[in-house]
């Protein structure tokens, strides 16, 4: 059941992004989409709207990059509640550190072990 919910929610989020790409007159590149999703996720999280999505759809909400934005925003909020300004500065990056490091490390490994095929 949870798998189905994850499929539906994740699919819907991707579908919404696809519509943004196809129905706007601008050339939307992957960088635009990724940055947009992270920012959107963080804002929704701050408004308290992202946690309900996570509770309902599980990975359907955490796997899209908006989930990454949510994690960073929650980290900043927690940090701010504990340590004030310094916590807010530290919290976001700390919470996102695992994902960023994993992506950089695996990206680096890919560049070492593979050749671009074109």
């Amino acid at each position: 059941m949870m798998l189905l919910k994850a499929f539906l929610l994740g699919g819907l989020i991707c579908l919404a992004a696809q519509l943004c790409m196809d129905l706007t007159p601008f050339q939307v590149t992957p960088a635009h989409v990724l940055v947009g999703m992270v920012a959107l996720g963080a804002v929704l999280s701050g408004l308290g709207l992202y946690q309900p999505l996570l509770d309902w759809g599980g990975s359907g909400a955490s796997v899209p990059l908006s989930g990454f934005g949510h994690v960073m925003a929650q980290g900043a909020i927690e940090g701010a509640r504990e340590d004030g300004l310094m916590g807010a500065l530290r919290g976001g990056l700390t919470a996102g550190a695992a994902g960023i490091s994993a992506a950089l490390l695996t990206g680096f490994c890919a560049s070492v072990f593979f050749k671009p095929k074109g």
């Binding site: 992270v38 920012a39 963080a42 804002v43 999280s45 701050g46 990454f68 934005g69 960073m72 925003a73 980290g75 900043a76 909020i77 940090g79 701010a80 916590g87 807010a88 500065l89 919290g91 976001g92 990056l93 919470a95 996102g96």
Partner: peptide, 9 residues
């Protein structure tokens, strides 16, 4: 991501 999360925090 960092910028927005700091503002949110």
């Amino acid at each position: 991501g960092v910028a927005v999360s700091i503002v949110v925090g």
